[in-house]
Amino acid sequence: MAGLVLTFTGLAGPYWPVVIAGLYGAGALIAPPERPAPPGFPSPSERLAEIRADFGELGGYLADVDLPPAAAARLTELTELLAALLEPGWVAEALARDPEGVHAVSRTVRQDVPEAVDAFVRTRWWTRLTPGTESPERHLERQLGLLHEEAGRLASALRDAEQRRQESHTRYLEDRRQ
């Protein structure tokens, strides 16, 4: 713009193309460079939606597996807790704000539960061929119990975070009153 003003006012004289080109070049050097767009990683809500879909697929797999009653009861407790954590709503939003929690639920749904159940099914077959070894049912029950404890700790941590949030808001309102 300054080059056009200099040209039309006659101050650039016969050198007006050089003045305009020079000012344009100076502007191009001063201007910030174009920055590349950041990568489009999935948002926490999108990640939870993917985990929900995988959890549904896991439920179909678990429905086809024949488990002993004690292990089936432990598995039901675990899947109910995971379903409550993944249910859309404020709980899932609280979980989405905790990347470690999202990772723990993802690992439980995508890796730990399928591995525990698959190992049980495979080991149960081998145990029939070699009786007298430790029962695979006991291992499965212990594994599911440990996974339930881990999910319970996550739920407790989310509850504690919400409780701290509530207490913080109470303190804020009390401080504002003074």
Rank of each mutant, 00 (worst) to 15 (best):
A73V: 10
P38Q: 07
A83K: 14
P38H: 06
V102S: 01
D66W: 08
L58C: 02
L67N: 09
P38M: 04
L29C: 12
G60C: 02
P99E: 11
L95W: 12
P32T: 05
V105A: 05
I30L: 14
G27D: 08
G101R: 09
Y61P: 00
L78V: 07
G56T: 10
E87C: 11
P88M: 10
Q111H: 10
F55A: 13
P36Q: 13
A53I: 00
L81R: 15
V102T: 04
T76N: 12
L48K: 05
P33N: 02
F55T: 00
A84G: 15
F55E: 02
L85V: 09
R110T: 03
V109A: 10
G25V: 10
A53S: 05
P39G: 07
L23N: 04
V65M: 12
G101L: 08
G60Q: 11
G101P: 08
L82Q: 13
G89I: 13
L62N: 11
L62R: 12
P36M: 10
V65Y: 00
G56C: 03
F55N: 07
G60I: 01
A71K: 09
E57V: 07
A37E: 14
W90A: 07
P42G: 06
L86R: 06
D54P: 02
A96V: 09
L82F: 06
D64P: 00
A37G: 05
P42K: 06
A49I: 04
A31G: 00
G56R: 12
D98F: 13
A28L: 09
P32Y: 06
R47P: 01
F55H: 12
G25A: 15
V105Y: 05
D66A: 15
L67I: 08
R52E: 05
L78I: 04
A83D: 14
